[in-house]
């Protein structure tokens, strides 16, 4: 796994990423509020410029805080992936992050999994 951005502010959010076939796995870190939402959006969209990516898995294990600004970021990336016929999964949610995702109805469009490998299996199963 390589670090995406060496600038200090971006380090606060996108910890690492990995590509497995047509699946992009991104680990988010820190606090997803309005201040960091723009940077998260830019960094994710830069990775999604790679059009061979069809599915997105967001590992939220190290995401310690999220408010409604994060909902907008997730919906925006979902639209990109949906246009490619893929799916967006979230994994390892902390209770507070889970509460926001539940409240906002995001589980209607994002598929939750306990772990990244379960999400990968889930996507592969649907493809087959």
């Amino acid at each position: 796994m390589a670090s995406i951005d060496s600038t200090q502010e971006a380090v606060g959010l996108l910890k690492s990423y990995e590509k497995k076939g047509d699946i992009l796995i991104v680990e988010l870190e820190g606090e997803l509020d309005h201040h960091f939402a723009g940077k998260a959006r830019e960094s994710l969209d830069r990775l999604l410029d790679d059009t061979s990516i069809r599915h997105l898995i967001l590992n939220l294990k190290r995401l310690n805080f999220m408010d409604s600004s994060g909902i907008g970021v997730f919906i925006g990336r979902y639209k990109i992936i949906k246009n490619r016929g893929g799916e967006v999964c979230v994994t390892n949610m902390k209770p507070h992050v889970n509460k926001i995702l539940e409240l906002s109805g995001l589980y209607k469009i994002l598929n939750p999994y306990d772990t990244v490998s379960q999400a990968v299996d889930g996507i592969r199963r649907e493809v087959i």
Binding site: A37, R41, D67, S68, S69, G72, I75, I100, L103, S104
Partner: peptide, 14 residues
């Protein structure tokens, strides 16, 4: 246009 979700007050109320 800012990709705001419009859920701010709903979160506060909840």
């Amino acid at each position: 246009e800012l990709e705001r979700s419009g859920m701010g007050f709903t979160v506060m109320e909840t």
